[in-house]
Amino acid sequence: MNEKQNANVFMTCKDYSVSGEDFQLLYDSNNDMLFTSPKPKDQDLGKYYESEDYISHTDAKRSVFEKLYHLVKVYSLKKKVTLISKLNNGPGKLLDIGAGTGDFLVTAKSRNWLVFGTEPNDQARKLAKEKKMNLDSETKDYKDATFDVITMWHVLEHVPDLQSQIKELKRLLKPNGHLIIAVPNYKSYDAQFYKSFWAAYDVPRHLWHFSKKSIQKLFANEKFNLESVLPMKFDSFYVSLLSEKYKTGKMNFLKAFSVGLRSNLEGNRTKEFSSHIYVLKKK
């Protein structure tokens, strides 16, 4: 994929979490997606994750927001494991890429899945180890066609080399195995409402910003079938809370709830939710 070809400036966004730097979102008309520009060099990416507020790398419950996040997380983890168990007709061999502090794998293991996971962040891996979950830093040592299910929960948007990652997913997955991808949707109502303040742009940590068309097209190139698209309805509230903070300097719970609810209602009509789960099957 030639990132610059057929690309126009869609929007300018700020990194509100760490650096305060501005980045452009460029529109790739070939794939109906956005990408962050300039893309940080691989060796520089790590510094943009150096924040105590980067919630997927911590188990902190310091604020009301973090406590609510973790309450919803427990419910969501059970729903995610139910989804993969249904797709696979029971437990099997699972790989979670970008496993964070390991909670999804802990939940899956409790339901008899044979679990493996990768996580590049040292601190997150350390927290996972405290839960008796040993994570690898990368996937290169796993054998071909090893896993029944591979999951990437809000991870694909962080991957520097998108095409190589999709090829690697194809290599690791068994024939007829399922791939579960969860990513934000820049065509949702909350994205349109908050514009450059939309927290799910999260530049430059989010390098890619997907639509349903882009996911289908990118994975079809590697012989994956898109079987279904599922909404992540809690995400509209979480993202709206953060977006309010970026826009106004404080978390306006009532306003964020109102926007999140409106986003889900609009999503019921347009099928464009704040985030989507894509269920793909290897041919």
Rank of each mutant, 00 (worst) to 15 (best):
E3I: 15
A7Y: 00
N8H: 13
T12K: 10
G20Q: 05
E21Q: 15
Q24V: 09
L25M: 08
L26A: 03
Y27L: 06
D32A: 10
L34S: 07
T36D: 11
L45I: 15
G46R: 10
G46N: 15
Y48E: 03
E52A: 13
I55L: 15
K61C: 05
K61G: 04
S63R: 04
F65Y: 15
L68A: 13
H70F: 09
K73C: 02
S76G: 12
S85Q: 09
G90C: 09
G92F: 02
D103W: 08
D103S: 13
F104Y: 10
K109N: 13
R111D: 10
N112A: 11
A124R: 01
A124Q: 02
R125L: 00
L127S: 00
L127E: 00
K131D: 00
K131Q: 03
M133D: 00
D136T: 07
S137L: 06
E138Q: 15
T139D: 03
T139P: 08
K143C: 06
F147Q: 09
D148K: 09
W153N: 09
H154T: 06
D161N: 13
L162M: 15
L162A: 04
Q165Y: 12
Q165E: 14
R171D: 00
K174A: 05
N176Q: 14
Y186V: 10
S188L: 08
Y189N: 07
F193L: 08
F193M: 05
F193N: 08
Y194P: 09
F197M: 08
W198G: 06
V203I: 06
P204R: 02
H206N: 08
W208K: 05
W208I: 00
W208C: 04
N221R: 15
S228N: 14
V229M: 04
Y238E: 04
L241R: 11
L242Q: 11
S243I: 00
K245Y: 01
Y246V: 04
Y246F: 13
T248V: 05
M251Y: 11
G260S: 04
S263D: 07
L265H: 08
E266S: 12
E266C: 11
E266Q: 13
R269Y: 09
S274G: 10
S274T: 05
S274Y: 05
K281G: 03
K282H: 10
K283Y: 11
